[in-house]
Design a protein around this nucleic acid. Structure first.
Length: 564
RNA sequence: UCGAGGGUCGUUCAAGGGUAGGACACCGGCCUUUGAAGCCGAGAAUGAUGGUUCGAAUCCAUCCCCUCGAGCCA
């Protein structure tokens, strides 16, 4: 058996292995997949995993992937969500071409399938209330019992079903159920509801219907109608596969193979549409695209790239094990992508005035700065240097800690792209003791790029020229939740108890170098020594607003932590 | 308790009878006009117990642990 050792059967995730085997044995001759969201919320990164899986698999095997909205519950679904979902899938870089479908496209067909099952004696109309159905269903350990209406005649079932459709009955008075086995150990097989009465306007079919199929009666048949070969879904549907298969067998129609994989979980993050909706509705965040949200739209606004998200989805792998992926991996992916692509600029978030006493008052130099040391083709730009600058407040310590090699009284540092300076004097507010200004001298021999610029100092600081810099607002984001597992709470409390009160910090008096003026929303930069930032849509002509996508790795922060 | 599925470094994914490997994280070093990036290195795992076998993460048995399941949600 060692002959096949290098065979690609063992070279990728279990789903691709199954598909390869299905192709080899001619179970299917082509590969069709689908991404089937319910339009009841915005897509999040967990969906991205599924999107990447389905579209990538189709592409790899020369097949196609459809986009299909699973819109069988009009009480929860809205067109707004449809729009956002299509936008997000496209933004992620996937194309369903002309294959945009809706489960609601199949309502007529589904109705016919239901009639067929009634005629075959495999479905019946139940008059039990929802409460009674629950009671009759039994429990995990006890079998259910048959509904007293289970043996209505085919004629009566047909008649009742027609009248359900014809809007003769109130919501909840009747349901259509499959006649399977009330004592099955699999609860899904205990005569599952196929249709319920819902007098609710559907976002697409409007008021054409007042009965709607349940997920179990819609999904498999929709797959079948579209000729899907591999219906990839998450683990919680594993128990439904028996029912999925049952309907397709009874109906004797094209049978796609359902395959389940483990959904994505990420530390410090919640990926439940229901809970995300709650955060939005109860205003814990500013909408679905709040940059703290794990939604695609939130990540996009935050500055994440589709490439980074796709890379992440590849790296996390596909398996059936319950897992929680370290959010550090997501951060690594975006850093790695942006490192190569984002131009470097200088921005001072918490400005501290610095005066170079021996630099002429009226002098302004245009210094050359490389835009990206990782990519020479990104060129250079000029930045103004003058006597009065701003540096980062955090880059000065009056009484320096161990291993500190930034600025301190008497110490020298390099100003990036400029000169080496030495701190001569600290000016404080006499009342508060707050440091308000630093006075330094510069060494004119040490200009960046010049022959004698080779002198080494330990620290290099970013800076902006006070007179030339422009003001900006910068929003710093931290994890939305304080705990790795946001659902880990005391009895009687819920995930909201773990919300991080400091997940958003807004800095309004930041100074950025003038080359950034007039940038468009979405533009991404590395603010030197700080992190990756992108222009937010809240920016106006008067003021730029930046989101911090992710900070740079911070070794100094680790040293500080270790010193404590 | 019943059914389904799953247990491999801290995390995640490989290896499917033949040297347990990668990535992220962590730690150490080199380099550095970003304490970034990059480069080099280290530590670190087969849930347990038996069995089969020359050889077991892989096959068998028993046990333990985790996830999901009792919507007219998907």
């Amino acid at each position: 058996m060692n002959i096949n050792k290098s065979d690609s059967i063992h070279s990728s995730d279990f789903i691709r292995q199954i598909i390869r085997e299905d192709l080899r044995t001619n179970k299917y001759s082509k590969v069709y997949t689908r991404f089937p969201p319910e339009p009841n919320g915005y897509l999040h990164i967990g969906h991205a995993k599924s999107i990447c899986l389905n579209f990538s698999i189709a592409k790899e095997f020369g097949g196609l992937c459809n986009l299909r909205f699973d819109d069988t519950n009009p009480t929860k679904e809205q067109s707004e969500y449809i729009e956002s979902i299509m936008k997000d899938v496209r933004w992620l870089g996937f194309d369903w071409e002309d294959r945009l479908f809706y489960a609601s496209d199949y309502f007529d067909k589904l109705y016919d399938y239901a009639v067929q099952l009634i005629k075959d004696g495999k479905a019946y109309i139940d008059s039990l209330s929802a409460q009674e159905i629950r009671e009759y269903r039994g429990t995990l350990t006890e079998p259910g019992k048959d509904s007293p209406y289970r043996n209505r005649s085919v004629e009566e079932n047909l008649d009742l079903f027609k009248r359900m459709r014809a809007s003769e009955f109130e919501d909840g008075t009747y349901v259509l159920r499959a006649k399977i086995d009330m004592s099955s150990a699999n609860l899904n097989m205990r005569d599952p509801v196929m249709y319920r009465i819902l007098h609710s306007t559907h976002h697409r079919t409007c008021d054409k219907w007042c009965i709607y199929p349940m997920y179990d009666f819609a999904h498999g048949q929709s797959d079948s109608i579209e000729g899907i070969t591999h219906s990839i879904c998450t683990l919680e549907f594993e128990d439904h596969r028996l029912l999925y298969d049952w309907f397709l067998e009874q109906l004797n129609i094209h049978h796609s193979q359902q395959i389940e994989f483990a959904r994505l979980n990420i530390s410090y993050t919640i990926l439940s549409k229901r809970k995300l909706l709650q955060l939005v509705e109860e205003r814990y965040v500013n909408g679905w695209d709040d940059p703290r949200m794990p939604t695609i739209s939130g990540l996009r606004r935050r500055g994440y790239t589709p490439e980074a998200i796709r890379d992440f989805c590849e790296r996390i792998g596909v398996a059936k094990t319950y897992t929680v992926v370290d959010i550090a991996l997501l951060e690594h992916c975006i850093r790695q992508d942006l490192n190569l692509r984002a131009p470097r600029v200088m921005a001072v978030l918490r400005p501290l005035k610095l005066v170079i006493d021996n630099y002429p008052e009226d002098r302004v130099e245009e210094l050359e700065a490389v835009n990206n040391p990782e990519d020479d083709s990104m060129g250079t730009r000029k930045i103004p240097f003058s006597r009065v600058l701003y540096i980062e407040r955090g880059d000065f310590q009056e009484e320096p800690q161990k291993k500190w090699f930034r600025l301190a009284p008497g110490r020298e540092v390099r100003l990036k792209h400029a000169y080496i300076i030495k701190c001569e004097r600290v000016i404080k507010n006499e009342q508060t003791g707050e440091i308000v200004e630093l006075h330094c001298t510069y060494d004119s021999e040490t200009k960046s790029g010049c022959a004698k610029s080779g002198r080494k100092v330990k620290g290099t600081l970013h800076w902006v020229s006070a007179a030339h810099s422009i003001e900006a607002e910068v929003r710093l984001y931290d994890y939305l939740f304080l705990r790795e597992n946001p659902n880990d709470v005391e009895e009687g409390s819920d995930f909201k108890a773990n919300l991080n009160p400091d997940s958003l910090e807004t800095l309004t008096s930041c100074r950025i170098e003038p080359s950034l003026a007039n940038e468009k929303p979405g533009t991404r930069y590395q603010f030197l020594r700080l992190g990756y930032f992108c222009v937010d849509i809240d920016s106006s002509d008067e003021k730029l607003v930046f989101n911090r996508t992710v900070s740079l790795r911070d070794t100094w922060a680790k040293i500080q932590k270790a010193q404590k």
